[in-house]
Simulated assay, not measured.
Amino acid sequence: MPKAKYVYQDLLDRQIRVTNIVGYAIVAVFGVIFLVSKFIFSIEHPLINITAGFLVASLANLLLYRLHKKIFLTYQFIIIMTFMVILIMSWYSGGLRSPAIFMLTTVPVAAFSTSQKQGVAWSVTVFIAIIVTLLCDSMLPESIIAEQHQLRFSFILLLLVIGIIIMLSYLVNESAFSTHRKLDRDRKQLEDKSIRLENLTTLLNYSNDLMCIIEQDNLMINDLNPVFKLHLGYELSEVRGKHMVDFIKSEEATPDLEKDLKSLQDDQVYEFSCTMLSKSGAETIFHWVAIAKNGIIHASARMNIC
């Protein structure tokens, strides 16, 4: 798998994991609110039915992800519906006086755990919602939370807010530490690869064999080692981009040789000997070993001293 694709998949897997954890945590939180409101505080209000509908829709949303596999849709539904339900809950439980308003602060935190753009967008949205709630204070309906239940209601919501913040902080920190460890591991691997590449480059440059990379379809030389200058006298720029047969003695640069090279299959090794022409006009016999891979021929040649 290509490196870029691997990194993308790794990030996507983390996003899926965080979204699922947050989604089920939200269902659990509002499930607690629903149970407490209905069975402990004995509240009978349309908001309770709205909360129940939200719970069912949220569970369906999380389960439907397994069918459509579009995590961004699942995430958007979770955060939008959660924001709306918290806003409605705050409206019917005292507006800015309601402890439910503090749950709105968890929305930008959750959004920032996905991306900076989402975090900024939801921070602005929450800020505007709070300002609008303040301006509409005189229009707020009477709180559905009875005065004798206000303390317990505030206590429960405070615990839920703390729990959500702790969970989100843990997920963000875990992701950050995981990313840091991965970057550190990749950095070390890159350093090792750089050292190996430097060693291979030194080996190629100081080898006594001609080495070159040739395009298989047209036999143009793409790259080569400095030994061409040592044995044949050519500057690298004089060879790069030229046809390979231009440097082979004309009597030996037969169509059969070109055909054989162009017809090589991947990983097929082909050996041949030919007389190479130096820049000075001198002729030297070299024995070539070529192997094809993905439309490229990797070839090396050793001077025939026999």
Rank of each mutant, 00 (worst) to 15 (best):
L87D: 01
I79V: 12
Q116G: 01
Q116W: 08
D137S: 15
F127R: 00
W91S: 00
I130S: 04
K70V: 07
K69F: 08
Q118W: 15
F83I: 02
A110N: 10
Q116N: 03
Q76I: 10
T133S: 09
I128M: 15
M84T: 07
L87I: 03
G95V: 05
L135I: 08
L96F: 12
V126G: 08
F72T: 09
V107G: 02
G119V: 06
I78F: 06
P108I: 07
T106G: 09
Q76M: 15
C136K: 05
T125V: 13
Q76H: 08
V107F: 13
S123R: 05
M81N: 07
V126M: 12
T114S: 04
I71C: 00
L87Y: 05
M81T: 13
S115V: 05
A111Q: 04
L67R: 14
L67H: 06
V109G: 03
I71R: 01
Y75M: 02
T106D: 01
T105S: 13
I86Q: 03
S98A: 12
I130L: 11
V132C: 05
G94Q: 01
V120G: 08
L96P: 08
V124C: 08
L73R: 07
L104R: 03
P99D: 01
I101V: 08
T74Y: 00
M103C: 09
I71E: 03
P99I: 03
A110L: 15
A110K: 09
H68M: 10
L67A: 06
F77N: 13
W91T: 13
L135T: 10
M81Q: 10
I88L: 13
F112C: 05
W91A: 00
S98N: 05
H68E: 15
S90M: 13
V124T: 14
M89D: 13
S98L: 05
I71M: 03
I86N: 13
S98R: 01
A129C: 14
T106M: 02
I128L: 14
I130T: 09
S115P: 07
M81V: 15
W91E: 01
F127E: 00
I101S: 06
W91Y: 09
F72M: 02
T74C: 01
F102D: 12
V107Y: 11
I101A: 09
T114R: 14
W122C: 07
F127P: 00
G119M: 09
